[in-house]
Design a protein around this nucleic acid. Sequence first.
DNA 1: TGCCAGGCCGGGT
DNA 2: ACCCGGCATGGC
Length: 214
Amino acid sequence: MSLRRIYGRLLRALGPQGWWPARSPFEVILGAVLTQATRWHNAEQALARLRREGALRPRRLLALPPGRLARAVRPAGFFRQKARRLRAVTRWYVARYGGRADRMFRRPWRLLREELLAIPGIGPETADTILLYAGGAPVFVVDAYTRRVLRRHRLIGPRATDEAIQQTAMRALGDDAARYNECHALLVELGKRFCHRRDPVCGRCPLGALPHVI
DNA sequence: TGCCAGGCCGGGT
DNA sequence: ACCCGGCATGGC
């Protein structure tokens, strides 16, 4: 089954996800860091505490004393690292683009990707998430769920690199940011609900319960 | 009760 | 070019 077909089935089975769950581009940036290797539920708690600190705006976040920022993001786990990472990406956002998404996304996304990857704590997935979900850039996001689902359905080989997976997905889906957005969101939703790490078979999976390699 | 979650980094082969 | 341990909380 092609990714295009998987996408169609998921859309029908799960409905449009309407991602990213955030009120502003800056919130997407914060959420992308906070959810690194962490359940969204935990990241959300951290975001709620940042909101109470008034730190959902770039300059307000930078004005927060480091210890206080770390305490606020504690529910997201890895909180000392994540506090530093949030500070780093926010410093960049303010210094380079005045903390404004409209200025940031006036630049070509390939350039932005390089800039993001140069920030400590921002790797490929976090960068691509920001580009796609904060700026609507046509980049497909590869994450743990994407790898697992595509691998279990044999759309990629066991040794495929994330770059290769990304190319494969983008070729299969065409140059369409809205579709990358929905497709990735659907894969995550599918993964969360039906396709966990140690499941030998996808039970009740909308794509069909097929035996797969773990 | 362990096990795991929408990664990234630094140090080791 | 990989592989690994560290980072940490909260839910099932």
